[in-house]
Design a protein around this nucleic acid. Sequence first.
DNA 1: TTGTACGCGTTATCAA
DNA 2: TTGATAACGCGTACAA
Lengths: 337, 337
Amino acid sequence: MITIKEISRQLGLSTTTVSNVIHGKIKEVSPETIEKVRRYLDEVEYVPNISARNLAQNQSKIIGLVLKTREDRYMDLLMDPFVSEMLVGIEKEVRKAGYYMMLYMSDDIAEIIGHASTWNVDGLILYCMLDDDGVRVSEKVHRPIVCIDTYSKTDAPGFVNIGLDDENGAYEAVKYLIGRGHRKIAFLSDNKEGVDLQRFRGYRRALKEAGIEYSDRSFLMLRTEKDEVERSMDRICTRIGRHTAVFCASDLFAVMLMSKLHDNGIRVPEDVSVMGFDDNLYGRVYRPALTSVHQDPEQKGKLAAQVLIGMLQGKEPPSRQITLDTRIVERESVKNL
Amino acid sequence: MITIKEISRQLGLSTTTVSNVIHGKIKEVSPETIEKVRRYLDEVEYVPNISARNLAQNQSKIIGLVLKTREDRYMDLLMDPFVSEMLVGIEKEVRKAGYYMMLYMSDDIAEIIGHASTWNVDGLILYCMLDDDGVRVSEKVHRPIVCIDTYSKTDAPGFVNIGLDDENGAYEAVKYLIGRGHRKIAFLSDNKEGVDLQRFRGYRRALKEAGIEYSDRSFLMLRTEKDEVERSMDRICTRIGRHTAVFCASDLFAVMLMSKLHDNGIRVPEDVSVMGFDDNLYGRVYRPALTSVHQDPEQKGKLAAQVLIGMLQGKEPPSRQITLDTRIVERESVKNL
DNA sequence: TTGTACGCGTTATCAA
DNA sequence: TTGATAACGCGTACAA
């Protein structure tokens, strides 16, 4: 790796001049010098040492992407195409803007803070934070932070969230089911926090509005530990009982459910209707194709990166909470009763 | 961010001593000093500035993960759960070993080289390289490099590949189909390079061994551009013709095919048998469940990271080419003729 | 128009 | 047992 010092020595110039040419500060450099330096730069394929640059400028050009894992349920995170698509959206934007992306997974907030500090990241994108996780990070890391799909209790400065109206999306979905004549509707999820909690609330609201009573037996809680999930799904199939429809908190769960229902001789949608949330490839490709609530993860990621990079350049974020649209995609997994 | 210099000033010590305590070089430091420094370090939550450390030590603790994209087919890469799972395997190991992961996507080798140089990455994991891409990188980046699933023509020093015996995996799969009475067997893929080429070769070999003639009409080439894929699949469904089985180069393609076959009223496996390669969640969850060739992407990623980190610590890699096992997983998508 | 000199935070050598 | 001091590569204020 050739350095500026070496180049300036070779060319009989000062490091300042070389550095200036590199950065296009050429108002005060003679054309000949510019040419000479540029040519040489090309010839030796000069690449700046970013560590040195970071040190000198106290910035890093790094955007940290943190995926918060949840204890043992490590695998699930990237198992869902949602995260992959989001990743693509982020990476594209980050690279386009001349930044670099550091990917970090952890369930430990302190570790996350340490990582951000030690690398002196310019900004942070946080996914899967719960409650005040995001706030805790932003208290220690004094850099712009954009969260995706986070529901915080408190507000903190320099803290933006990109999300969905999950409550309403779920509400519309369940209303859709009710509109098709369903009244015994179950809710399937693997937790009752964050995004899933909101979706559950939307489900409850739609039920209530239609004067349908909710019983805890209608909450189908999936265990997602690696060697539990199969058995858990089987158990859920037997527990579906007299429900005529199941609204699932994700497409992935919906498809896993349909698959298990099939094995248990229960037909979708003839015997039971199934609806998902996400509208991803799993649901689109399965047969019967899954009726679902649409969202666009790549768009979410892209937007998160754009807003963050905007903040790095001094722009005010459009708002503290950016909420993306949701819409129902009708396919074949819901029957009219 | 507090610095060593500041700490030493506060404590009335030299930076050397503080640094030594931080690094556990305490053979020659008095117990009281150690305690004093440690306590203060804790109190102020000292975090080292990695850029400075990198500069001083000419290393970076960064492992670059490069996913080579192919022109327009950007999305596909992370669409396949294969990449996500591999990513998880890599990230876990990298973090466990105290390294950091920088994720980079590009189809431009020069850009990839520039990225690795500018960050002075300690090592590189390359995925999806073709032919001599990997070699070109390793010629310029004089760091340990581990490739995943790369077939290079040439060998280069410090260049290790982790892969599968794709040729043989495909060979066994097609032999399996032939063993079930199939003779009209098609091959489905979206390209004829790298891994897919090997799988195609295995397919050809099995055919040849059984005395079955191959015709180009049996190569079903899928177009994967975003707005082509649907139509392309439809066309393929009509082109299946008198084939009794389709061997697909990936589970994802296999499931997309089954889905389209379903829409065209062609039953799997009654009318046509389908076999995939990967054994991922798409195939496991679909009904009929997909018979496939198993591989473990997380394991692949984990191994790649382990070998690379080993090399960084001066260990010789076990060999230049590490080939993982493959096995057939029988499920419901193949019929006995 | 170009050059000198210093600072960024850390590590490392060598002297005290 | 501890402390000066130089070095890593870059950017920049200021001097020439």
